[in-house]
């Protein structure tokens, strides 16, 4: 249930992101989902991929500051109120979100990737409410 997300430190420098995507492409690593948090000086790239360990290894070899972060993915119907329902469960159980991003897939479903301080507890309460969670194996299919 815990998804291993790749986090990469990126300077705000022209072409830097392209270098990174080039390395991933060369190593046949597919990006299933990603987001970038940006500040004036730097950005943090967050990537969901089927091969996080390989990605970490090849990027480190090329001098990137990389870290694997545990996140969870909530799979929902792509319809009004679905995200709200999921977030309400977390809020009611005192779980706060550090950051999140979401993506929709073609089959009327959407996934929200969530980083929280207590991923285990989040999984517990979401499962209690019969929410569908993204499994590591699913990442390959996204």
């Amino acid at each position: 249930m815990i998804i291993r997300q790749l986090s990469v430190f990126l300077e705000n420098r022209a072409g830097r992101l392209t270098e990174l995507t080039g390395i991933l492409a060369d190593n046949d690593i597919n990006i299933s989902a990603f987001s970038i948090a940006d500040t004036t000086d730097f950005g943090i790239l967050r990537v969901i991929t089927g091969k996080p360990e390989l990605a970490e290894k090849v990027l480190k070899e090329r001098g990137f500051a990389v870290k694997i972060t545990d996140v969870i993915g909530i799979v929902m119907r792509n319809k009004p109120g679905a995200l709200h329902h999921a977030l309400q469960i977390l809020t009611d159980n005192g779980i706060s979100i550090e950051y999140m991003y979401a993506f929709a897939s073609g089959d009327d479903r959407a996934t929200a990737v969530i980083r929280t301080d207590s991923p285990k507890k989040a999984i517990e309460v979401l499962q209690l409410h019969k929410m569908e969670l993204l499994k590591t194996g699913d990442v390959y299919q996204i």
Partner: peptide, 10 residues
Amino acid sequence: VEEQFFSDEV
């Protein structure tokens, strides 16, 4: 930013 102190939170 060294590996050890890189955090993925802004």
